[in-house]
Design a binder for these strands. Sequence first.
DNA 1: CAGGTC
DNA 2: TCTGG
Length: 432
Amino acid sequence: MMAWTPNWTRLTSAAELALDRTLTCGQSFTWTRLPSGIWYNTLRLPGHAVPVLLRTHNDEVQFRSFGSPRSQAQFQQPVPKTPLPPTQYLVAPSRDPAAVVAPSHDPVYLLLHDYFQLSYSLPALYLDWSTRDPSHFAHVSPLVPGIRLLRQPPVETLFAFICSANNNIARITGMVQALAMRYGECVYPGGLLDIGGEEQALPPMYVFPSMDRLVQSADEIEGVLRGLGFGYRAKYIAATVKTLGGLGGEAWLVGLRGKGYAEVRDALVQLQGVGRKVADCVALMSLDQPGAIPVDTHVWQIATRDYKFKPSTKSKSLTPTTYDEVVKLFQTLFGPEAGWAHSVRSIACFFIITRCAAFSLTREHRSCSRPTWRATLATRNPNPRLPQLRQDPQPLPISQVNPRLFQNQRPHQRRHQRENARPQQQRRRQFG
DNA sequence: CAGGTC
DNA sequence: TCTGG
């Protein structure tokens, strides 16, 4: 097993990219963190998947990749240049053109440069958003530096966020990885890898399945995914596979890059299991719509509590009208990259809330708009009974993902269990 | 009840 | 409404 990028190579500075925060904040579900702090994933080059390792070392983010000799030969072929994001960044005087990294000829570098959108200078963005929102963003963003919005592959982003409805990050991660293990190609069998003189144990790596592979399995996919515990999302995924396949598959989806926001959204919401919120997630994180703002219940709370948002209608919940109004609010505030800004802002708020929980603070302390939480946190001791916030939250290793996800349980079996209406205790023990 | 959708 | 914490 020869190394492709033989040494750890500089990708960017740690200030430009906080790996742990960026990869665990709920935008991508395909990265896994090893105990050593190294992140791994399989990323797709045109017609090809490559295992990639990332780490933060000596104040910089570094990458390396590896592959079989055969895949190395394929790397030798010219790789099309990945397009830079359509942004005013490189021409606007307020942005920092010096942050643009000189292009390299390493295809993996180009891939990562594109994936992490390194054409954007993150400190310049944070500064801009802090100026636009001095009373909120400026206060909380220093808590969560280095959060980059990823430019992800559209197909896996679409299916990941169909899974995200009424769900949590840990479970979504398990589902996406289950999809990769069930239908994706294995690009690394697992085993010890020599990394700079040290042996690193790596699990098997699977790439997220191609659209063609999913279409091929369209008829069985609902039953299989229900058996894997996907719930009602199994039906959405199967239906979207068929619809998207008919529309032109991955090429059609990727073709939405470069179109206007309204067209992208309208195209996405015709897919089953894709409402406005999911459509905005996919648009923002994979289809070059940095202004798209996914409004969930969490964002709704931020808007009403911290920004004193008052909906025009009396509706207490999130209607299409109020959704649009919240979007308008943040777009006006943050400008063209409002979706990115709002993501950072939400993650900061989540950080504070988590801290508040660990410190047994009441709801009134949680307001991210006031600097009061800062002083309050400083004077309190954490409640030892509540879980501490981990510095580096680790996603589940692939080997430890809920074993139930990998049982080949038939859907009828599950329905039968429900009809028997056993007491909770007994049902739980079955899977223990 | 959770970071919705039909 | 699936499912899990």
